[in-house]
Design a protein around this nucleic acid. Structure first.
Lengths: 105, 105
DNA sequence: TTGACAAGTAACCAATTGGTTACTTATAGT
DNA sequence: ACTATAAGTAACCAATTGGTTACTTGTCAA
């Protein structure tokens, strides 16, 4: 598994960071607007954003003295794909169970 | 978000635990067979399994003196669903982009 | 050019995490 | 009853994590 995928799994492990992504899903926001939504200091928010940026889940552009943060869901594809593999496992097992039930008739 | 979902996100954040799930995807295994696949002590493996069990990703049954471990992918549904919400975001943005491109013609 | 404001760094701290070695418990087989 | 084997706990440790306060940097606007 790629180093970036590892980072994404780590990034979304924290509930605060998941909330941050959910907030950015609705709109692009400057740091101070994000900050206002959390009961923690700015440095704490900045650290979380650093984690999200380093795995490309959040992208930033400067606008005057504000840093606009926007969501980039693309790296989540790694998570989606990883989970999907287990869906197939699930299906297989359901099929086996069904087969067993059938043969018991 | 539910306490169990939080635990699942934490559980799959660790690459070792993801590998363990991948191994159990293929077959139900006793601890010592799992242990044999990792270069770490038994207590370390047991601790990882404890995390996986506490969020129901792994279920255990006794068979003689062995503890058989099997995968239960069901809790991963929380992750699948959470990621799926962002797929919709992605689609929306792609649609907006397309619309923009269209109107530029 | 100075004042105000947004963003960011530095240094620190307590709690959690992922690992270790040494020891214990439980079950099977002779 | 004894021995070997599988699983598990206890106690510890270093590194990482998620937070803090105090201070710095960068940009706009008067």
């Amino acid at each position: 598994m790629s180093r970036l995928a590892d980072e994404v799994f780590r990034a979304i492990a924290d509930p605060t960071r998941r909330r941050m992504l959910a907030i950015l899903e609705k709109e692009e926001l400057p740091l101070k607007r994000i900050e206002a939504r959390f009961r923690m200091s700015r440095p704490a928010v900045i650290k979380h954003m650093r984690v999200l940026k380093s795995c490309r889940l959040v992208q930033v552009r400067r606008q005057g003295r504000q840093m606009m943060h926007r969501l980039n869901p693309q790296p989540l594809a790694a998570v989606r794909d990883w989970v999907a593999a287990f869906d197939r496992f699930w299906d297989t097992h359901m099929a086996r169970l069904k087969q067993q039930v059938e043969s018991d008739k």
